[in-house]
Amino acid sequence: MDKVLMKGNEAIAEAAIRAGCRHFFGYPITPQTEISAYMARRMPKIGGTFLQAESEVAAINMVYGAAGAGVRAMTSSSSPGISLKSEGISYIAGADLPCVIVNIVRAGPGLGGIQPAQSDYFQAVKGGGHGDYRMIVVAPSSIQEIVDSTFLAFDLADKYRMPVMLMGDGMLGQMMEPVAFPDTTGVKLPEKEWATTGTKKMRKPNIINSLYIQPDELEALIKNRWKKYIEIEQNEVRFEAEGTEDAEIILVAYGATARIVKAAIKKARENGIKAGLIRPITLWPFPSDVISAAAKKVKAILCVEMSMGQMVEDVRLSAAGACPVHFYGRTGGVVPIPADVYDEIRRYV
């Protein structure tokens, strides 16, 4: 297929439609509003639903309802809106519903700013909502990868019956790059016999619910869900590794930051420093094994984020003291530049 230039936000919307999503519930917020605008234009033309909810709280609960009714449903927002969705995400996890939530992260806390950031890592991978639950988090770093990750997100959500977050940042949402979309004609979506589509008097009622008053019943249910989470940790880790074989220092970065880090690594290599990159594509499940193996072979690990240091905690847990784990971060919407990352690399080799 012909490549077209597309903004990250629009690419997400188009990919979602091609992945079979016909129900989108949104609420405007910079820097992701183009997703809603695209859906508003396209959905009516293809018999789908675009609805601008009265708030993010309403939007995520519309997703809850639609997902429970068996359709591929999606919502998108940016940081402050995701905070509002956190309650709904917890209920969705508790009711084993598949859906996709997009977070085009901006700087926080509070109203913060609208420029790119990665300071919602904790919120995404460590909960955000209440209770014992997990959410798959996919963090692409190019517009083509955004497209591929959107398909992946819907597939994983259905496969494991759970919420999946697609996490980008203002830079990825706003920038354009060439993309090609896979041909999806004839692809069948999975059957969902658990959905509330009406019994038609042919089966027992289906119930979508997260309330379990009896502690042992709830514990058994959560333990069962945990088996699924362990399976995901074994099978669904995705990452990119580059130049790790001979590396003396390994950088860990995800999303847009990884692109900047790659430029710094290139310069380090030109100057005789053997630097490599591990780029988590799934933030949960986290690529702990590769990082832990790498930590045993290198002088140091340098984690670079657009935050004050969030993913670095998981990198440290994975490295388990095998080598020092350093951190370089910019925050508040400031994007690190390759030259500064290069200077950091030089400090540790």
Partner: peptide
């Protein structure tokens, strides 16, 4: 919605074109 660039508001009139009611 002014700040975010012209989306539909609860007070948008019937028939009014906005970014999210194109």
């Amino acid at each position: 919605y002014g700040m975010t660039g012209g989306q539909m508001a609860p007070t948008t009139l019937v028939g009014q074109v906005t970014q999210t009611s194109p």
